[in-house]
Every structure is written in structure tokens, then in C-alpha cells.
Amino acid sequence: MDQRPLGLLTIHVKRGINLAIRDARSSDPYVVLSVGDQSLKTRVVKKNCNPTWNEEFSFAIKDPNVPIRLTVFDKDKFTGDDKMGDANIDIQAYLEALKMGMELLRLPNGCAIKRVEPNRQNCLSDESSIVWNNGKITQDMILRLNNVECGEVELMLEWHEGPGCRGLLPSS
């Protein structure tokens, strides 16, 4: 079996919205993203329940069915970090849009290719658009955190196929 990744998924972690309070009056949040055995985390934003991270992380995607997990934590100095919620990032609709390939070249910039509605299977808090812009397909989303009283995280997905990647489309 071909062990090369299909491509690289860049996840731009933009900001947290109304995150839970885990310290006296605020929290010191950071995000951990995990895909299979890959795990990366943002910097800690001190004393802020509406933090802005604006950080990008790229993951080699070998199997599109492996869940992408986002977990928010509150950094604590003297005890273990407190969990502030989690969510799965559903990329299936995004990957389907990417498979449209060359058909998209005729679309105008800023054109929404697909809209994804929130449902019980995804963690979307609002409709998410997959957009064709400047030769790239991106998806902005706001995820509602599970296992916590409140909180959302805003993200953007972007796909890259480079040297050493198999690609999403079967080679002919």
C-alpha cells in the first residue's frame, strides 16, 4: 500500500469565542490539534476567554477518514491543565469539493462551492462555506466545543498537494 500522504491540510486556528472560565475570572487557553499520531498546539493566551491565536498548522493526511481532533485547554502553573472542551473537524465535504479539481477554474473569485449546514454529526455552530478564491479552495468554520458549558473556535482549512503527495484524485 502507498504510504505517501494524500496531501497536506493546513488548519488556521483564528480565535476562540466565549470560552469557559477555568481560573478565578478568566482562562489561559491554548488549542491542541491531533490527527492520528500527529499533534500540535497553539501558544497560550493569558487571561482571555476570547483569545486570538492566528496560527497555522499543517498535517500530512494519509487517510481522510482518520478524525481530526481539536481540544482547548486552560494552562495552569501548579496543577494539570484544565480541559475546556473539544470538537472533531469534519473534512469530508471539504475533500469532496477539492475533488472537483479543474472544473473550478471557470468559477469567479469568492464563489461558494458548497455550504455545509450544522448537524448532529459535525460540530459546526453555524453554516460553513467552502470557497474558491485566488486558485485555492478554503473552508471557514466555527466549531462549537463539546463537553463544556460554552465556547467556540474559529478555523480555516486549506489543502496543499506537493512533491511526495499522492493527491486526492486517482491518477489516470
Rank of each mutant, 00 (worst) to 15 (best):
M1V: 13
M1Y: 14
M1I: 12
D2Q: 14
R4H: 09
P5Q: 07
G7S: 05
L8K: 11
H12G: 05
N18A: 15
I21D: 06
A24V: 11
A24H: 09
R25C: 14
R25T: 15
S26L: 08
S27R: 02
P29L: 02
P29K: 02
P29G: 03
Y30C: 08
L33K: 03
S34L: 07
V35G: 05
D37E: 07
Q38P: 07
S39N: 05
L40M: 15
K41E: 13
K46P: 00
K46L: 07
K47R: 15
N48M: 04
C49A: 03
N50T: 10
P51V: 04
P51K: 05
T52V: 15
T52N: 15
W53Y: 10
N54E: 15
F57V: 01
A60Q: 12
A60D: 09
A60V: 01
K62Y: 15
K62E: 14
D63A: 07
D63E: 08
D63V: 03
V66P: 03
P67F: 12
R69G: 00
R69W: 06
R69A: 05
T71C: 12
T71D: 13
V72Y: 08
V72Q: 08
K75P: 02
D76R: 07
D76C: 03
T79N: 13
D81W: 00
G85E: 01
N88W: 09
I89F: 04
D90A: 12
Q92D: 15
L95C: 11
M100P: 00
M100E: 12
G101F: 00
M102F: 05
M102Q: 11
M102C: 03
L105T: 13
L105F: 15
R106C: 03
R106K: 10
N109A: 08
N109T: 03
A112T: 14
A112S: 14
I113M: 12
K114W: 01
K114E: 10
R115L: 13
R115C: 13
V116L: 06
P118G: 04
N119H: 13
L124R: 04
L124P: 06
S125Q: 11
S128G: 06
I130R: 08
V131Y: 06
V131P: 05
N133D: 14
N134F: 07
I137H: 01
T138G: 06
T138H: 05
D140N: 15
M141E: 14
L145I: 00
N146A: 13
N147R: 14
E149C: 08
C150P: 02
C150H: 07
G151S: 03
G151L: 06
E154N: 13
E158T: 04
E158D: 02
W159Q: 09
H160Y: 07
H160L: 08
E161G: 04
P163V: 01
G164T: 04
C165K: 14
G167I: 08
G167A: 09
L169W: 02
L169H: 02
P170L: 10
P170H: 07
S172I: 10
